[in-house]
Write a protein that binds this DNA or RNA. Sequence first.
RNA 1: GCGCGGUUAGCUCAGUUGGUAGAGCAACUCUUUUACACAGAGAAGGUCGUAGGUUCAAGUCCUACACCGCGCACCA
Length: 728
Amino acid sequence: MEEKIKKPYDASSTEPQILKKWDESGFFNPDVCIEKGVTSKDAPVFSMVLPPPNVTGTLHTGHALMLITQDIMTRYARMQGKRTLWLPGTDHAAIATQIKVEKELSKKGIKKSDLSREEFLKKIEDYALESHDTIVNQSKKMGASLDWSREAFTLDAQRNKAVNTVFKKMYDDGLIYRGHRIINWDPKGQTVISDDEIVYEERKAKLYTFKYSADFPIPISTTRPETKFGDTAVAVHPEDERYQEYVGKEYDTVFCGEPIHIKIIADREVEKDFGTGALGVTPAHSMIDWELAQRHDLPTKIVINEYAKMTVGGEKILGKKTEEAREAVVEWLRSQNLLLKEEEITQNVSTAERTGAIIEPLPKLQWFVDVNKKIPDRQNKNLKELMLEPIAQKKINIIPDRFEKVYFNWVQNLRDWCISRQIIYGHRIPVWYKKNTEEILVCPESTPNEEWEQDLDTLDTWFSSGLWTFSTLGWPDNTEDMRTYHPTTMLETAHDIIFFWVARMILFSQYVLEEIPFQNVYFHGIVRTKDGKKMSKSLGDQAIDPLDIIGKYGNDALRLAMIIGNTPGNDLKLNEDDIRGYAKFANKIWNASRFVLENTNDIDSSDLQKLKENLDTEDSASMQELEQLIQSITKEMDEYRFSLVAEKTYHYFWHTFADILIERSKKKIQENKNSDSAKALLYLQLHSLLKVLHPFTPFITEEVWSIINTKNGKHAEEDLLLVQKWPI
RNA sequence: GCGCGGUUAGCUCAGUUGGUAGAGCAACUCUUUUACACAGAGAAGGUCGUAGGUUCAAGUCCUACACCGCGCACCA
């Protein structure tokens, strides 16, 4: 008997030793498992990529939930003897990281404009590296059984090769194009963003009803009078009797000192009942108006610049911010008696996800992915169809399945994806332009000479993370890993990135490889506080830091608290009392194990089958009960019902194994009545229970296992619980 | 406006082919018995959001509605 088990279980001193054993064994790497004979080469494969955490700081509870859920899947697969790969990495997170660094610099009084592009980039890279190291260390401390030998970064050389290869292929297929279109401009971040990076915020606004001028016949309504300098038409519904006589006519008039030319058009998109039923069309500064202008071939007049400042108007307006200009215009309308009505309405304002700035729609030359173009090489399907197909055909199984509907809805409404960004951190767009000409080169074999300039923009960060299932396996090189592990078995991630990431991975894999990126998608929820608030750093003390928790209560307690009572797709409320409760369970495992070890010294445990055969009737029935439990939880593990399995196992261990079987054995041993059977039962039960508990509470089970092994003189790496076979 | 989720014990949540309501935590009573007081034993606690319907039988299926949360669209 080791001295250690006589003392109470201390997670904080035990866990580092366990981590070291696992690390030294190399068994997180499937190649090592094959080499050392714990996995057979032709075993079924389980592969999964880690959703790469952004290199923007430290791990939070959301990451912890992700690591824990995936580690359970991975450990279970490994114990089933599968060739198991869980592949780690980090995400450069382009805009998020750049903005974080900008903020850090501004705290030190340094402005982005004080630095050269190279200096600024260096600052970002330094920060990213530091964050990376923190995140990797923290992930390791959590016991995540990731194969670090295959670690990838979305912005490293191999991934850049993948990105450029895909870009070139899509360009050649006409799926990537450069176009002058109205886009979402973030005036604070000074970059374009995609539709998905917009967050709608409900705000109160004023709806103004007015005429451009006294001699203009139709009043219009708008919340943004300052944009009206850019109007080139007024649109009405074709069946609106009030305005029919005007349709087709054109007017030259003066609005707030600025000459404007307005054509009256009729379009079915116009709501008769909203405002005056007439819509001032501002093609350059409104998405809808841009589309109207396309349909009716209207000119575009830009009156707002990239800094959300006015480019036309008198002295109270020119060069002013839009809010200021709005007031000036309203003032002018009042003074001219043109303002007919002013009413409060609530409207959804588009803001930028990362900077919070109000989006300014602007026409700009940008790079896009065409989602509607038919692809000859793919049976003339477009990207949307390629994204819908595997879900519709159930080639990809989504858990919980209600997210299928959400996915369909999004794909069906998808517009072309704007992929260029005016930020410096990211994959540079692999396109060169010949100076003073129209010529361009896309992904040339070698860097062109000085007559050529590379595009200054970078790619949307989701372009590189969208390739993650195969770029991490070495694609575009022809690798053994690609052949073995792709399509991956499982993608486990948070449901809030279904569009950003899950959909894009399906897009790229379907298009590039003509295969699905993963067979299953499992969504976990968002971690919230007791009061239902999203767990984030801004909450201060209320936010739970996973690293603090594992220091205090141990990994095993945190894991149980995050798994029990948490079902896929649903949010999880986490509080410290629960974690403390599960730390007691770890102690229970420890104490029960101590009793078993102290009382089974004199039995021969080398032949488990023989032990089993010699059980008396009562103990044999108990063994059968456990076997039935294992049978049912194995089925439930295969259905990803981890909460149920953990709860059942917890309950069995405590209230059957400890409360009933151990108590019963005490009597038998004391009275020396069938005591061999009692001892055998304890040993056999503990042996199986440690295995089925291991995916959930890997640390304490590995520690108890190693004490049993020491007693039995087993010291080989192959004897680690980590690589034992799941009981059948 | 369209859609999704939630509403079950004080709290957090399970409850998969419809068949006498479950767990953890908290609170209560008793017990320091040699694995464990980070424990054991015991008791208590719910007309499963509301109203209908289907059925021999509904937390579970159907239809409305209410409240909470979320997504999408509109947003002149």
